[in-house]
C-alpha cells in the first residue's frame, strides 16, 4: 500500500512529507507505548499513535519507520515536525481513534507483518 492510500483511508491531514506519498509500505503497528514499539516491532513501516512528544519521532527513526500517523486529531509540535523532516519521516493526523484507524488499514490490506 502506498502512503497516499493510508492518507485516503484514514482521511488524514498531511503534516510533513508530501513527497513520500508514493512510497510503498507493507505493515504497520499501533501503540502509545514506545518501549513496546522498540521491543516487539519488526520491519513495520508505519506507526499509529496517540502519543505526542519528540520520542515518538526518535522511536520511529530507530526502527527505520517511514510514516507516523497521529490518531484522535493529535498534532505534533514544531520540534517534532523538524525532527521528522530531518529524518525523512512522513507525519499525518487523523480524526479517527486508534481502534478504528488500525481496523480500517488492516481491512484495506495493510497487515502487521506477522506471519507474512
Amino acid at each position: 500500500m502506498e502512503i497516499r492510500q493510508i492518507q485516503e483511508v484514514l482521511e488524514a491531514q498531511m503534516i510533513v512529507g508530501e513527497d513520500s506519498l508514493d512510497k510503498d509500505v507493507h505493515s504497520a503497528c499501533g501503540s502509545d507505548m514506545m518501549s513496546d514499539v522498540l521491543a516487539y516491532v519488526k520491519d513495520q513501516a508505519v506507526l499509529l499513535t496517540g502519543l505526542v512528544n519528540a520520542q515518538v519521532i526518535r522511536t520511529a527513526q530507530m526502527m527505520d519507520m517511514i510514516c507516523v500517523v497521529f490518531v484522535r486529531s493529535k498534532q505534533p509540535t514544531a520540534d517534532m515536525v523538524e525532527l521528522a523532516q530531518e529524518a525523512g519521516i512522513t507525519l499525518m493526523s487523523t480524526k479517527k481513534r486508534m481502534y478504528e484507524a488500525c481496523g480500517l488499514l488492516y481491512a484495506s490490506g495493510l497487515g502487521n507483518g506477522a506471519g507474512a
Partner: peptide, 15 residues
Amino acid sequence: SLGFGAGMGLPNMKR
C-alpha cells in the same frame, strides 16, 4: 505518560 517506563528498557537492551 511519555511512552516509556514500561520496564522494557534493560530487557530490550539485552534482547
